[in-house]
């Protein structure tokens, strides 16, 4: 989703932020380092680090940003547990759409990858042809959503 959103807004982001690479936060995303560290300390349950990260984020970006970041972090503490505890596999269309991102981030290292089928040569071939089409479709969906919300 970060990749998709960056693509839609033509923003330069380095996805290695997801894996905690601080140097990857130096790009077009405002408060990226503070947000990354806050999310990390919350999910790791490191209370001392969380206190420091909370203060750093609030100080740099303000209370409203901190509150919305805490809300999103809480939301995904739930979502990961729903996905893993119900054992859901990656949706078929996402297997093709996310091949490169999963490889860039080495997501296969996670145990819950076993709940999804492996990527095949056929998936890779389909991805070559389908990615431009998918990008086009997602742009249309985004445009429609933006029109509908204004």
């Amino acid at each position: 989703m970060l990749s998709l959103s960056a693509d839609m807004t033509k923003t330069d982001v380095n996805l290695q932020m997801i894996n905690g690479d601080s140097s990857a936060t130096a790009g077009g995303l405002e408060y990226a380092l503070e947000l990354m560290v806050f999310a990390e300390s919350l999910a790791r349950r490191d209370e001392a680090a969380l206190t420091t990260a909370r203060e750093a984020l609030a100080s740099a970006a303000g209370s409203a940003v901190l509150v919305d970041a805490a809300a999103v972090a809480g939301n995904f503490q739930r979502m990961v547990r729903i996905a893993d505890a119900a054992g859901i596999p990656l949706d078929e269309r996402n297997i093709i759409a996310t091949i490169d991102i999963r490889e860039q981030l080495d997501l296969q290292r996670f145990g819950s990858a076993a709940n999804s089928r492996s990527t095949t040569l056929s998936d890779r071939l389909k991805a070559v042809f389908m990615k431009p089409l998918m990008k086009f479709v997602m742009r249309r969906i985004d445009r429609k959503a933006n029109t509908g919300n204004h």
Binding site: L2, T11, L35, A39, A43, A73
Partner: peptide, 16 residues
């Protein structure tokens, strides 16, 4: 994008 950064980092630490 900022939401997805938080979402992605939380998910990665949870090994999802």
């Amino acid at each position: 994008m900022q939401m997805e950064l938080v979402a992605g980092r939380v998910s990665a630490i949870n090994e999802c």
